[in-house]
């Protein structure tokens, strides 16, 4: 038995300790966003945030996650109340098939959480582990830049100027 904090809730996991986090999220907790892409950490489709860092859930056994905090795409907003990253992807229509997108959104979210002023270059570099086969890259980059703008803490002057 392993206990994880998933999207703010404490969850007790019955799966065997060697089970990769991905299968726990999808099959036990019914969370759809993290996807099986390769099982090898080569494509990024399974990416979630663990204690603030983007990790490949397909190669992370739950046994190493006891007591740790896991955030999936479902934890940063919902269809009815989308978060800034989700609003940005919808605004830029940054998906074709969309299968790779949740993993990219989570890595971008982790980056912007720790560095709200991430440059275009650092966003591109951060996404290097992720594959998109539809060729949506230009829109994905635009969406993340848009989310960054929205998530950036506004300065006092900017706030009063409004």
């Amino acid at each position: 038995m392993t206990t994880l904090i998933v999207n703010g809730d404490s969850r007790t996991i019955e799966a065997s300790p060697d089970t990769p986090l991905l299968y726990v999220l999808r099959d036990e907790l019914g969370l759809n966003a993290a996807k099986f892409g390769c099982g090898l950490g080569q494509c990024g489709a399974c990416t979630v945030i663990v204690d603030g860092k983007a990790v490949f859930s397909c190669v992370t056994p739950v046994m190493v996650l006891e007591g740790r905090t896991v955030t999936t795409l479902e934890g940063i907003g919902s269809r009815d109340a989308p978060g800034p990253m989700q609003r940005a992807f919808i605004a830029e229509q940054a998906a074709q098939c969309g299968y790779c997108i949740p993993g990219m959104m989570m890595r971008a979210q982790a980056l912007l959480n720790r560095d709200p002023h991430a440059t275009d270059e650092s966003i591109e570099a951060e996404l290097q582990p992720h594959l998109c086969r539809c060729g949506t890259h230009m829109r994905i980059l635009r969406a993340i830049r848009r989310a960054a703008e929205e998530m950036r803490p506004k300065t006092v002057e900017a706030r009063t100027a409004r």
Binding site: L31, N32, A33, T72, L73, E74, G77, S78, R79, P82, Q86, F89, I90, Q93, A95, G98, Y99, I101, P102, M105
Partner: peptide, 12 residues
């Protein structure tokens, strides 16, 4: 189809 795909809906 995009909102479900970017919020963890059952899309596939």
């Amino acid at each position: 189809d995009i909102p479900a795909k970017v919020t963890g809906g059952a899309a596939y």
